Simulated assay, not measured.
Amino acid sequence: MKKQLIYYPIREITCLLTGFLVLVAVTQSNGQTKVQIKGDKFFINGQATYSGQAWKGHTIEGLLMNARLVQGVFDDLNPETVDRWKYPDTGKWDADRNTDEFVANMSQWKAHGMLSFTINLQGGSPEGYSKNQPWHNSAFTAKGELRGAYMTRLKKILDEADRLEMVPILGLFYFGQDERLEDEKAVINAVDNAVNWLHNHKYKNVLIEINNECNVRYSHKILQPERVHELILRAKAIQKEGYRYYVSTSYGGKFIPLPNVVKAADFILLHGNGVTEPEKIVEMVNQTKAVEGYQKMPILFNEDDHFDFDKDFNNLIASISSYASWGYFDFRKKGEGFEEGYQSVPVDWSISSARKKGFFNLLKEISGY
């Protein structure tokens, strides 16, 4: 069969190309990831997360399974302690390498069904748990201004999360580092600057956690349980083009949120640290729903250092059995190798250890990915 060549006038070709470019532009614009909360469910780009998925009789649809990966933008501005975080292969710390390796592994986490992660502008303990924190890890200056290098690293992570349709939980403050801000005015300034930065970059896939464990050793009263709701309301009130961020805060392990936070927050953050019996996880969820001011909203564990992923019932399974999202928290224990843990610095961000594989393999099964 003889092929027939079709010739178009230049004007028509130009119109076709213009139409193609317009189509590409619309596709790119509509491709921006957006998180929504409807009742007690999370939605990404208009669709409930894990749509239609159930596991062993437990509904997964609308949950936001996650991990505590707070050191993604970590750095140490204290020259006396920075050598603690040397990479084993180079013998030195490298903040850009840390973020680049974080970004390089995000698609693997998503492929196992992890849709969210907590990342903090003041990190977490790079030793797992620690009482004293001589290191200086803060994206904020003493007056609450943003440090450019930190925000450049954060942008890399949020851009990739946007591309992958993931929903980061951005924590602003961490106890042990909050005293780096000189006064309450600086704390308020930091909240305003961080939220406005998110707005200016037009992210719509980010949830905000004002501070990690507000009831643990904070220097500034406005970051403590009695007043932290003021910052939740302040962050919610910052709107641009009709859009605002969903905001909450968290408490230490086993602690049930107080009414002032429950009334102000858009979603509830719980921590399972110290909860050694999975049944107690279910109790925490039920107790949270009984707090004064609770309305139907998502309940989300974003920190739990218990594993037992090979058992029939563990904290993760207990959480989803009560229709609450769950977050994996793992740090390198004494004597363990570089591949262990996601909070201890330097971090191996790959799915490298037996614990990491246990979590991600179970998550993949539960999520149906």
Rank of each mutant, 00 (worst) to 15 (best):
E226S: 08
T249Q: 08
E283F: 09
Y243F: 15
D183L: 03
E279W: 08
S248T: 04
L223R: 00
I268Q: 01
Y243Q: 03
Q295W: 08
P278L: 00
N215M: 07
K185S: 15
Y246P: 00
E283H: 07
Y218Q: 04
H220T: 04
P225C: 13
V187P: 01
Y203K: 01
V187Q: 00
L269G: 00
Y246W: 00
R244L: 05
P257L: 06
H201W: 01
S250I: 06
Y245G: 00
A237F: 07
D192Q: 09
R217Q: 15
E226K: 13
L258F: 05
Q287E: 15
V275E: 04
C214M: 11
S219Q: 15
H229P: 03
Y294T: 11
D266W: 05
E279Q: 12
K202V: 12
K254P: 01
L207M: 12
N260T: 14
Q177G: 07
K280L: 14
H220L: 09
Q224A: 08
K236I: 07
D183K: 10
N273A: 09
I208A: 11
L181P: 01
L198F: 01
Y218W: 10
N196D: 15
Y294D: 03
E279T: 07
E241A: 14
G242E: 14
K204W: 14
A190H: 06
